[in-house]
């Protein structure tokens, strides 16, 4: 069966059900204030037009559902992060006319086990797709943003003892 070129490939709810074996934990929220907003702005290349980011986490992993515009339309991406590394990146919805190749496994698996360097850049190069420059850039930004936000929650998960 062919995956459709444009549309919703998987709903965010289904993504979370899959990640957390049908028992997703309650959502938590990170508010983008102060330095967090500044860092998010640096990563996205523009001010985030949202005030907070929702995520889901258990003791092993965190899951993020983020959006960024490619050329004119938002691309919805689901990410799973374990110990500061991306374990899964999946395009959940793609609405642009061009550049949908980023939804394929051959592209998204480049993000497997990718982490952040000190300057909030990915620690591995992501090969692009001709004609899909903006879509590739959008996914790369979201990967960086999710990893950065995940790093903010680390002290919280490590705190109980």
């Amino acid at each position: 069966m062919l995956a459709q070129a444009r549309g919703v490939y998987q709903s965010p709810e289904d993504f979370l059900q899959e990640v957390f074996a049908h028992r997703p934990p309650p959502a938590k929220v990170i508010w983008l204030t102060g330095e967090k907003k500044q860092k998010a702005t640096e990563i996205l290349g523009h001010k985030p037009d949202y005030l907070r980011v929702r995520y889901w986490a258990d003791e092993n992993r965190s899951a993020w559902i983020l959006e960024e515009i490619g050329k004119t339309e938002p691309i919805t991406v689901g990410l799973v992060i374990v110990e500061g590394k991306i374990k899964r990146l999946r395009v959940l919805a793609f609405r642009e006319s061009r550049g949908d190749e980023v939804r394929h496994d051959f592209f998204t698996r480049q993000f497997d086990d990718v982490g952040l360097k000190e300057n909030n850049r990915l620690d591995r190069h992501i090969d692009g797709i001709t004609g899909a420059t903006l879509s590739v850039r959008a996914l790369t930004k979201l990967a960086r943003l999710a990893l950065y936000l995940d790093s903010l929650r680390q002290p919280q998960t490590a705190a109980p003892s």
Partner: peptide
């Protein structure tokens, strides 16, 4: 409300946005 109005109905909340777009 702010996030929704900023993006013309496409707020940051991907889950909510997903529902809106459909």
């Amino acid at each position: 409300m702010i996030e929704s109005s900023d993006k013309g109905g496409h707020g940051h909340d991907a889950m909510a946005k997903n529902k809106r777009s459909t």
